[in-house]
Design a protein around this nucleic acid. Structure first.
Lengths: 153, 153
DNA sequence: ATAATTGCAAAGTCTTTGCAGTTTG
DNA sequence: CAAACTGCAAAGACTTTGCAATTAT
């Protein structure tokens, strides 16, 4: 369907795979976690907030509490398979780490562009050389104006 | 004391100047606003949260309510003389727009580096050419690991 | 005068936590 | 069985809002 920017073979991420990582980390596999993971993967490339995820999970499993969703995401994040991004204002959004990318968010209409992983190499190198910093590129979003909002402004 | 990165003459920003901008925008000059502006300027290059600012203001003007500080910052921001930045987790921080710069925040210890305005030109150009986006560089922080945390990790 | 601003208290949004009961490995 | 996890309810951090009284212009 779409080619991978680096020509790597795209390894499909299944709920099973994710849960396995979780178990390997000492975690337990529960109904609630299964549901959260399935729903997260179903979101695909979409950026999901914890609350949206909770709502989607509760559509099929009404007993799963929001707190459990937050805790599951925390747990998944500590294994490194999931991470969250701050898209400016509003809640954090969660996604798998299998497909590295950066985000830019329109500060006016909240539209999102995904940028290829290399897009920040220049800044990353500077930060490292001049300040000794290691950039964690998946954790923040750039902010700006999308083409539509720029012309309207 | 310290030289400007671009060798421009540094125009000193005074409370009066800021309040004038506010008035020119149709705003009124009040005791509370005077106090907020003075305290904000006193913070210098430091990145202040609304709550920190409120606390500092209240040290001398206990009657000024936190809500007023938030509203004043909003108002100042809409004139363009102040803006806020998201430094990752936690509250936004506010600063004058007179001295453009970017931030990187350590995701482990919250240390901050300021980066010169040009540091993101490369990404900005890409965003513009490839996606039509206009980067609003003062609005976000990069996230990473500072030298100390990187070596400890 | 009149429109903007204030203080207050209350609510709103997003997230975390303590706890007692349940479930997993 | 022991440790991990859950639902719940409550609280916590940060920010916004409605309103009646005050104040700047």
């Amino acid at each position: 369907m779409h080619s991978h920017p680096h020509g790597e073979v795209e390894t499909p991420v299944t709920p099973q795979r994710v849960l396995e990582v979780l178990r390997r980390d000492g975690g337990r596999i529960t109904e609630a976690r299964r549901a959260v993971v399935e729903t997260l993967l179903a979101a695909g490339d979409h950026h999901v907030t914890a609350d949206e995820l909770a709502a989607a999970v509760q559509a099929r499993h009404p007993e799963v509490h929001r707190a459990t969703v937050y805790r599951t995401l925390d747990r998944l994040e500590s294994t490194g398979i999931v991470s969250h991004t701050h898209l400016g204002h509003g809640p954090s959004t969660f996604h798998l780490t299998d497909h590295p990318h950066h985000h830019a968010v329109c500060r006016s209409c909240n539209a999102i562009v995904e940028l290829p992983p290399g897009a920040l190499d220049d800044v990353a190198a500077r930060l490292h050389d001049q300040h000794g910093w290691t950039l964690a590129p998946q954790h923040f979003a750039l902010s700006g104006l999308c083409p539509d909002c720029a012309t309207l402004g």
